[in-house]
């Protein structure tokens, strides 16, 4: 009895200390860490915004000199910049439309139809997402280069590289992301609503446009937004498929050696702020009108 009581007596304060340590980690250190981590994530963005108000003396916008709003007053005032931004937006819009249509069809087939070869199709969707961007860029470039040796490809289709080859590349890397996003939305789809439409005499075409499509629309929009943002930000794959054509990221990288103009920070800030505003506003709108039948059903 005495022997077993003694270790208990010694262990008690140690356990107490351990519990206090755990509690202080839980109560103070973890929230503090989360705060510091979020701040760390935000720092480069804050630096980008701050340096859009810089007035650099030399060519490079790397050290702080003086406050100025000159770049904000003339955000496209660098040769080639307006053209690059226009090209980026055009490619993003076109590749989003094409990839969303192709991806939606694949998503519908995968979720709603039984067919052989499903495993291979899934693999073909999954592989582009797990291939490094540089390999996607290089392999497309080798295709474009090799196509000049093929008689069945009209001269100049793919090489020299152009707007078209960038567009081909962006559609390619966007399809998988669209499929994955839409598939997640289609799983758990209320099939009985379509059956109800059929029972009420709607043909398949009407059922698709009046019942199915409105239900999957949020997923389609989410996929399209993802595709747009991936396209407008892409540098690596575009670098290998662009030739002389400049997109906004290519412009940034190209001017990196000569010194990045302050205007780049201005446009970066505008893109960042509009993306944040867009997400905030759409979240608020969604919260206000819960008209979404899929979600309503889940609740």
């Amino acid at each position: 009895m005495v022997a077993s009581a003694a270790p208990n007596h010694i262990q008690k304060p140690r356990g107490h200390l351990g519990r206090r340590l755990v509690r202080s980690v839980d109560r103070w250190i973890l929230p503090l860490y989360a705060f510091v981590a979020v701040l760390y994530l935000a720092i480069p963005v804050l630096v980008m915004i701050a340096f859009s108000f810089n007035d650099p003396t030399g060519r490079s916008n790397l050290t702080w000199k003086a406050f100025s709003i000159n770049a904000w007053l003339d955000p496209l005032g660098k040769p080639g910049l307006a053209q690059a931004v226009t090209t980026s937006i055009s490619i993003a819009v076109l590749s989003t439309i094409i990839a969303t249509i192709l991806g939606l069809l694949i998503g519908l087939a995968l979720v709603r139809h039984a067919f052989r070869g499903r495993g291979i199709v899934n693999l073909l969707i999954f592989l582009p997402m797990s291939t490094p961007e540089i390999v996607l860029g290089v392999s497309l470039l080798t295709l474009f280069i090799a196509s000049t040796q093929w008689s069945f490809v009209p001269k100049g289709t793919f090489f020299p590289l152009s707007f078209t080859t960038i567009l081909i590349a962006h559609v390619m890397f966007n399809i998988s992301y669209v499929v994955v996003t839409i598939r997640a939305r289609l799983q758990g789809f209320p099939r009985h609503l379509e059956e109800a439409a059929a029972d009420l005499g709607a043909n398949e075409w009407t059922t698709f446009w009046r019942v199915t499509f409105p239900l999957i629309l949020p997923g389609v929009i989410a996929a399209a937004l993802l595709a747009f943002s991936l396209s407008i930000d892409d540098y690596v794959i575009t670098e290998f498929t662009s030739g002389q054509t400049q997109t906004f990221p290519i412009f940034i990288f190209g001017s990196q050696l000569r010194g990045i103009p302050v205007q780049v920070n201005v446009i970066g800030t505008i893109i960042f702020v509009s993306a944040v505003l867009f997400v905030v506003i759409s979240t608020l709108l969604q919260r206000r009108q819960r008209l979404d039948p899929v979600e309503a059903e889940e609740e």
Partner: peptide, 28 residues
């Protein structure tokens, strides 16, 4: 013919990935 309908939906996107993803790795 649900299987054929499935393949018809798949065809454009899968062909695209075969031509501009799968084949280019062979070409590389």
């Amino acid at each position: 013919h649900p299987s054929i309908a499935g393949w018809l939906l798949l065809a454009p996107g899968i062909l695209y990935l075969l031509v501009f993803y799968a084949y280019p790795t062979v070409q590389m």
